[in-house]
């Protein structure tokens, strides 16, 4: 519907909307996060929900202790290899539609612990991530910003067509393989359907920070 016409109608006391708008508004306004944290980022996440920053303003005040009742997984903190299967399993137990915020350097890439023997190099190796929030840890403002970015992303989703969200596409998986504990590492060490290593131009590795090809 034409936006100008809609505004004109609303001036006359007639409110028009589409099912898509209503559906997206409902989803984005009641994102219930899963109540779990892994490391120091969780402290910032807790601070975000408290009175000073008050995440409840955005419709996310209900942290659910059960994955069955949650829409949003905020992966807040270092994911050790020992913890990774449980995180993936929790994600699998969440009903669609579900979203993932990867909060902090560790959840994105392993952060300061990257290349360590016990730390996963980012949760996006096993589950799809919607929003990445850099920081160590990110301040509550950053989490709120990331949260609003997720809301914006939801609001802009088309419910039909090839761009429709994952949960409306029957071909897209809702559950992802849980990695197993191996003799030397997690097996598999990543899920190639979700994540693939970026191409690296090794000749640039000596001098700088522009390693991508």
């Amino acid at each position: 519907m034409d936006e100008a016409l809609k505004i004109e109608l609303s001036k006359q006391g007639i409110f028009a909307t589409t099912l898509q708008e209503l559906y997206n508004w409902g989803r984005k306004s009641s994102l219930w996060p899963l109540n779990f944290g892994l490391a120091c980022c969780a402290i910032e996440m807790i601070a975000t929900t408290m009175a000073r920053y008050d995440l409840a303003r955005f419709g996310a005040e209900v942290f659910r202790p059960s994955p069955r009742q949650a829409d949003l997984m905020i992966v807040a903190g270092t994911i050790t290899k020992k913890m990774a299967p449980q995180v993936v399993r929790l994600y699998n137990q969440m009903p669609e539609p579900k979203y993932v915020i990867s909060m902090g350097a560790c959840a994105i890439s392993g952060g300061p612990f990257k290349q360590g023997y016990n730390v996963l190099k980012g949760i996006d190796r096993y589950i799809p991530v919607d929003i990445y929030i850099p920081g160590c840890p990110p301040r509550p403002e950053a989490l709120i910003d990331g949260f609003m970015a997720l809301q914006k992303k939801i609001d802009e989703q088309q419910l039909t067509g090839s761009n429709r969200p994952r949960h409306l596409n029957a071909d897209e998986p809702s559950e992802f393989p849980v990695p197993q504990f191996g003799a030397h590492d997690l097996e598999p060490s990543l899920n190639p359907e979700v994540w693939q290593a970026p191409l690296v131009n090794i000749s640039l590795a000596d001098n700088d920070d522009s390693g991508t090809a």
Partner: peptide, 9 residues
């Protein structure tokens, strides 16, 4: 394990 992937710096 040889799980090197990518390091920008």
């Amino acid at each position: 394990p040889n799980d090197y992937e990518y390091e920008p710096t």
